[in-house]
């Protein structure tokens, strides 16, 4: 990392870095082969068939269908291999594993604000343990940013008004760059930071030294009281609004019989744009909390709602596959899962 020698690769510090580099090397070889082939042929022809006198005449070439088909099909075949390879890496990159440790990241002009589950907060730094799957849930307070760690070979746009995710498993301790990779205004190039990948024991120590006052969900609970949410969203369901106990990750029936999944985005939308989706059978009386709660506060509220949600997952933000569900169920299948019988203990809080 500190070596000053010229390198052509960033360090491989995540579980996918090696696979991305392999595909890259494969492509470099393909490109070198075709570039040299074309350059070699052109130079060879240019010399061999150079015009020696004005009377020099070319031999006509008869375009061959077979030749044309050959040099269409071979590149097509090669490019489909590249496509499949690249897509399979992408598929891995876009699906955070169920056991991921969750961290919330908020971008704003021009800094990164990080909240850990345990309550630690940091700015332009991200401390994580080596060897754990880490899932970042990202959002922005203003413009579009992009959270990029070259050593992990991954990035994701950070879009205002929605949650995006990015995950990686660091494989090497050390300090790595965080770059904002989507142009975001004057100090775009100053929106940088550092990831510190630590041994788990060091990470645990770091967590305890942070002086955090309560976990995210505890702070979310405090906000829940403070903003008065609790007066309507009563735990026993007798309030004027639906109870939030056991809600997280479950399907919710809203107006006109539509069903939505109560994930982090839904909770966020309901806090900031309460009229957008009204739960069936309830009056649209909730005021908006725009301007009263920050993006980070919303994240704490989401964690609180999650903490009083069904105890069937290890606490992933987007609904994660229940360990009891059988068969393959990526994506929508598990989003509709209404498995109430799960008994897994929540992750360490």
């Amino acid at each position: 990392m500190d070596s000053k020698s010229i390198t052509f690769f960033p360090e491989q510090a995540s579980s996918i870095a090696g696979t991305v580099d392999n595909l890259y090397l494969f492509l470099v070889l393909i490109s070198a082969f075709f570039s040299l082939l074309i350059a070699g042929l052109i130079i060879y022809f240019a010399v061999k068939y150079r015009r020696r006198s004005d009377a020099d005449m070319p031999v006509p070439a008869h375009g061959g269908l077979l030749l044309e088909i050959t040099w269409s099909v071979i590149p097509l075949g090669i490019s489909m291999v590249i496509f499949a390879w690249g897509a399979s890496i992408f598929f891995t990159e876009s699906r955070p594993p169920a056991d991921s440790m969750e961290i919330w990241v908020t971008g704003k002009q021009w800094m990164w604000k990080v909240q850990h589950m345990e309550g630690q907060r940091e700015i332009n730094e991200l401390h994580i343990p080596v060897g754990r799957n880490i899932k970042l849930t990202l959002t922005s307070e203003d413009v579009i940013h992009d959270f990029y760690v070259p050593e992990f070979r991954t990035k994701a746009d950070v879009v205002p008004g929605r949650y995006t995710t990015e995950w990686f498993r660091p494989t090497k301790t050390g300090k790595y760059h965080i770059f904002c990779a989507e142009y975001c205004g004057t100090k775009h190039s100053g929106m940088v930071g550092a990831v510190y990948v630590m041994q788990p024991a060091d990470y645990a120590m770091w967590l305890t030294n942070g002086g955090a006052q309560g976990s995210m969900s505890q702070r979310g609970e405090a906000l829940f009281q403070q903003l008065g949410c609790v007066t309507c969203h009563q735990a026993d369901g007798h309030g004027r609004c639906p109870t939030l106990v056991g809600l997280f990750g479950k399907p919710v029936e809203i107006q006109h019989g539509q069903v939505v999944n109560a994930d982090a985005s839904y909770i966020r939308e309901s806090i900031l744009y309460p009229q957008a989706k009204i739960v069936a059978g309830y009056e649209p009386i909730m005021p908006t909390f725009q301007g009263q709660v920050t993006e980070e506060g919303v994240q704490q509220l989401v964690e609180y709602v999650k903490s009083i949600g069904p105890k069937d997952t290890t606490g992933a933000g987007a609904p994660t596959p229940s360990p009891l569900t059988t068969g393959s169920q990526p994506g929508t299948a598990q989003q509709r899962a209404t498995n109430p019988t799960a008994i897994t203990v929540p992750g360490k809080r």
Binding site: I16, V20, L23, Y24, F83, G86, A87, F90
Partner: peptide, 9 residues
């Protein structure tokens, strides 16, 4: 850059 896995990087 058309290869998804590399483009992300």
């Amino acid at each position: 850059v058309a290869a998804l896995g590399i483009d992300v990087h």
